[in-house]
């Protein structure tokens, strides 16, 4: 975790949509990572812990259930592109939300320990931001 964590969720990351809150998230790792690397998304919105099973994720224009990312090894999350977490919480344009996110990126070529477990590179975010309206 480091100063670049500040870039993971940005001032304009929140968007209110018809089915909930979209959170644009940027990678803190220096190379694009295959989608199974999105190993850990501990998300709390306004104090409510969001079960990853409730999340879906849009990367490269395709929406995946969070559990589907593990199967999407041929696709990469690019360094400068956001992925969007679709979070089922009630919101509206202009509403503020506190977003706490511990993002753990599993680095699939840096293996540690006797069990050859991939390094998990974490970043931590705790920001209160205002949701914009969805662009139509």
């Amino acid at each position: 975790m480091g100063p670049l964590d500040d870039q993971v969720v940005r001032a304009d990351s929140l968007t209110a949509t018809a089915d909930g809150l979209d959170i644009a998230v940027y990678s803190h790792w220096y190379r694009a990572l295959p989608l199974p690397s999105l190993a850990r998304v501990d998300l709390t919105v306004d104090g409510r812990r969001i079960d990853p099973a409730e999340l879906s994720v849009t990367v490269n224009g395709t929406r995946h259930p969070f559990s589907g990312l593990a199967e999407a090894g041929d696709e990469y999350w690019f360094t400068t592109d956001p992925l969007v977490l679709h979070v089922p919480v009630e919101t509206a344009p202009g509403r503020e939300h506190r977003v706490q996110l511990l993002l753990g990126l599993s680095i699939p070529y840096i293996l540690t320990g006797p069990d050859r477990v991939p390094l998990v590179a974490p970043s931590a975010t705790d920001k209160t931001l205002t949701a914009a309206g969805a662009r139509t």
Partner: peptide, 11 residues
């Protein structure tokens, strides 16, 4: 890069 642990469940 060689992502030997690309898949969570296998090498």
């Amino acid at each position: 890069f060689l992502d030997t642990k690309l898949h969570p469940d296998r090498w």
